[in-house]
Computed example of a mutant assay.
Amino acid sequence: MKILITGTAGFIGFHLAKRMAERGDEVVGIDVINDYYDVNLKYARLKESGIEKSLTTYNNPVVSSKYSNYIFIKLDISDKHNMEELFDTYHFDVVCNLAAQAGVRYSLTNPEAYIEANISGFLNVLECCRRVKIKHLLYASSSSVYGLNKKMPFSAHHNVDHPISLYAVTKKSNELMAHAYSHLFDIPSTGLRFFTVYGPWGRPDMALFIFTKAIMEGKPIEIFNEGKMRRDFTYIDDIVEGIINVTDKPSKGNPDWNAQCPDPGSSKAPYQIFNIGRGAPVSLLEFIQEIESATGKLADKKYLPMQEGDVAETWADISDLENELSYTPRISVKDGVREFINWYDNFYRFKVLKKRVRLRFTSKYNVLVTKR
């Protein structure tokens, strides 16, 4: 099939685009490549996918040197005109919207970025899907939508009307917007609430990256809520396989949906919400122990109170995805952390070595010039 994946310079989008290109789908990936975190990591992901940085000018299609069926275009989903032209040109079967302004804490100080990307940008995606009548829209939601909910495990059938960050508000808004378009225009849509995704090529603002960097550099790590945190850490390969399972099976209306007792996770319209996690929360201190084991170094721990906008625990009820779409997370936290550490060590050690070689060459060159 022909699929549009937004956010393919991002963590999940990068892995999904590679996986779908490898299985033979025609993939078009877009990303605005903003500077929320290090753009060099984003360009490195693209390079790993066969997309050279020098070719990625705005709105210019670049064919991957590794996958002839993968085209990347630097494009902002908030750019309505060029998004419409993109859909008119490629006639997508499926759209997977992973582009978003990420991060809970950043939303406390930069709310406008979330409205532009996560609301206005998503509206453009919906409108384009309506215009060309795509077969299936998938989009990234988040475990953050559960907010003040304390009923565990979190279920897609629970009420989620009490978010505690603007980031969560925008993700819940995406679910509501998608439902309206599914109802009005019969667009099959599926929202995926991601639970703490981690793994190689992960985001620098996520706990695993932050902790690993600090531990390997001998710096203290900050542990919030005095260490009383649990997260449903989910390895990237399991996430990607789950997304692909969902991609291949467009949502259908729930024939048992009852308007007198409405189920928040489904509808009479072709709309559904799934949790996608591992279904097994791990304490943050256990997670840090796995990092210590993989790096061979002990962390210098600094315990702090809870941060604004954060929650103490996440735990995904993944039974719907398991029962309906054969989703089976396989990677243990121990193995997943080791895979990340191996990638981090190789990626950043190589970058440091390249920098040192470049500096030595420059120094030698300057000496030669001086002698002349």
Rank of each mutant, 00 (worst) to 15 (best):
Ala100Asn: 10
Ala100Tyr: 04
Thr109Trp: 08
Asn110Tyr: 12
Asn110Ser: 15
Glu112Gln: 15
Ala113Glu: 10
Ile115Leu: 15
Ile115Asn: 15
Asn118Leu: 04
Leu123Ile: 11
Leu123Phe: 05
Leu126Lys: 05
Arg130Glu: 07
His136Arg: 09
Leu138Val: 01
Ser141Phe: 02
Leu148Tyr: 12
Lys151Gln: 13
Phe154Ala: 03
Ser155Cys: 02
Ile164Tyr: 08
Lys172Phe: 06
Ser173Leu: 04
Leu176Pro: 10
His179Val: 08
Ala180Val: 11
Ala180Gly: 13
Phe185Thr: 01
Pro188Gln: 06
Thr190Leu: 05
Gly191Ile: 01
Arg193His: 05
Phe194Trp: 04
Phe195Asp: 03
Pro200Val: 01
Trp201His: 14
Gly202Ile: 00
Pro204Ala: 07
Asp205His: 06
Leu208Trp: 03
Ile210Lys: 12
Ile210Phe: 08
Phe211Leu: 12
Thr212Trp: 07
Thr212Val: 10
Ala214Cys: 07
Ala214Tyr: 01
Glu217Thr: 09
Lys219Cys: 09
Ile223Glu: 05
Phe224Trp: 14
Glu226Tyr: 14
Glu226Asn: 12
Met229Ser: 07
Met229His: 06
Arg230Ala: 11
Asp232Met: 04
Asp232Val: 00
Asp232Ala: 13
Phe233Lys: 09
Asp237Phe: 04
Val240His: 02
Gly242Arg: 13
